[in-house]
Amino acid sequence: MLAKRIIPCLDVKEGRVVKGINFVGLRDAGDPVESAQRYSDGGADEITFLDITASHENRRTLFDLVDRTASTIAVPLTVGGGVRERRDVSELLHAGADKVSINSAAAANPTFVSDMAEAYGSQAIVVAIDAKRVPGKTARWTVYTHGGRRDTGLDAIAWAKEMADRGAGEILLTSMDRDGTRDGYDLVLTRTVVDAIPIPVVASGGVGTLDHVYEGLTSGGADAALAASIFHDGHYTVAEVKKYLLERGVCVRPPEQC
């Protein structure tokens, strides 16, 4: 049976981790390669880098980082942030990323997603959707781009369907309302998207407790749970998350004893 995945996410800027990571004994908390290795050794099923470097000129730094990380870790690596054109996708894959995550560029030009899926295979193309609830009685969300600054007005559910139809291999779904709150994933949003599309959904935004991860994978129905701060701040290890899930009957790959 296919396991649910636990994915630590690292925000990187100019080749460095943005928020420090509280691993015991980590030599350099700002080194994404060392952090990624710690996570993969600890049982992470996949690692995601989100590049928040403002300028596009420093891409070389990111490619170099992806190259060094892919040489070091033996789990899949997803890289997103600032992916605008075909060259960005091909260079990231060439550097060793297994999947590339596309966000604003998809909203600006949905054909870009179809073209990239056609060129590199759906398995390599993730579409990141930042969704924010529209105030009102009925549950509705719209898609935000540019790091959450711009409301596209697109309906998040219809958008997820279109992206799946266009060949996205996976949706990375972030609740803008929950991101950074530690109140848990937006379970209604997650479940609605999961039920609407035939491709995996990675839940993101809002995890503060072990139970939030459990809820995201069960009530929310997500195929994978992405989290940042609960791991970075040293609140929980990936192994603790997995142990909690296994005890409650969720199918995850058990952390290895090593």
Binding site: M1, L2, A3, R5, G169, E170, P200
Partner: peptide
Amino acid sequence: VDAEGRPLKVPHIGWNQ
């Protein structure tokens, strides 16, 4: 279909036993 009766997703991507 999977154990919960939901349609299986293809490609098969992820960790399996």
